[in-house]
Simulated assay, not measured.
Amino acid sequence: MTTMENLPRHVTVLEYLQRQLAGDLAEGTVTHMRYPTAISALLKLRIAEIGEALAVIEIDADAALHGNQQGTVHGGLLCELADAAIGTAHSTLMEPGESFTSIDLKATFLRPVWQSRLRARAWAEHRGRTISHYRCDVERDDGKLAATITSAVMTLRGERAQGR
């Protein structure tokens, strides 16, 4: 026999992530998107702040683990960190039956990283019904910007959102 207590409690993505961050996500609470994402778990990305169309994601970056040929942290890691922050920010706007996809991503690298806790702060500069534009600043733990990333994100609805 199923009781109301045994049924999962469905919440919005924003509420789910806020509760997860606060440490008071009740067992059985679910949302319609996957959290944590597989790539975030693999790279050990952490949500540091969450709001409507806003996310701050952190990673402890180290060239010994995430390095390129020059001995600095690979720019692709900074792009992935920013993409995760942008995706997390946009996911806070998604309703059941909606999904999204990135249309583009442009990175401008400003400073190298060798070993640092990186913070990617992403926010919507323009929120459209279908296309939204985001900016993400990736900051080193010394407070200096390592990169700025911009991205356009398309919200998918109905059949377009199925399986994504």
Rank of each mutant, 00 (worst) to 15 (best):
Gly28Tyr: 05
Thr29Pro: 03
Thr29Ile: 04
Met33Phe: 07
Arg34Ala: 14
Arg34Val: 14
Arg34Met: 15
Thr37Trp: 05
Thr37Asp: 06
Ala38Pro: 08
Ala41Tyr: 06
Leu42Thr: 15
Leu43His: 01
Lys44Thr: 09
Leu45Val: 01
Arg46Val: 02
Ala48Ile: 07
Ala48Thr: 03
Ile50Phe: 00
Ala53Ile: 00
Leu54Cys: 06
Ala55Pro: 00
Val56Leu: 04
Val56Lys: 06
Ile59Glu: 01
Ile59Val: 10
Ile59Ser: 05
Ile59Thr: 03
Asp60Gln: 10
Asp60Gly: 08
Ala61Pro: 12
Asp62Val: 01
Asp62Asn: 04
Ala63Arg: 01
Ala64Asn: 11
Gly71Ala: 04
Gly71Gln: 12
Thr72Pro: 06
Thr72Phe: 09
Thr72Asn: 07
Val73Ala: 06
His74Leu: 05
Gly76Met: 05
Leu78Phe: 04
Cys79Glu: 02
Cys79Asp: 09
Glu80Arg: 14
Ala82Glu: 01
Ala82Ile: 01
Asp83Glu: 08
Ala84Glu: 11
Ala85Met: 11
Gly87Met: 06
Gly87Leu: 07
Thr88Cys: 14
Ala89Met: 05
Ser91His: 03
Thr92Ile: 09
Leu93Gly: 09
Glu95Ala: 07
Pro96Leu: 07
Pro96Thr: 07
Gly97Pro: 03
Gly97Tyr: 03
Ser99Thr: 12
Phe100Asp: 09
Thr101Gln: 06
Asp104Arg: 10
Asp104Pro: 14
Asp104Cys: 10
Asp104Lys: 11
Leu105Trp: 08
Lys106Gln: 15
Lys106Cys: 13
Lys106His: 15
Ala107Pro: 12
Thr108Ala: 14
Thr108Cys: 12
Leu110Ala: 04
Pro112Ile: 06
Pro112Lys: 08
Trp114His: 15
Arg117Asn: 06
Ala120Asp: 00
Trp123Asn: 09
Trp123Phe: 11
Trp123Lys: 13
Ala124Trp: 01
Glu125Ile: 09
Arg127Tyr: 03
Arg127Ile: 12
Arg129Val: 13
Arg129Phe: 09
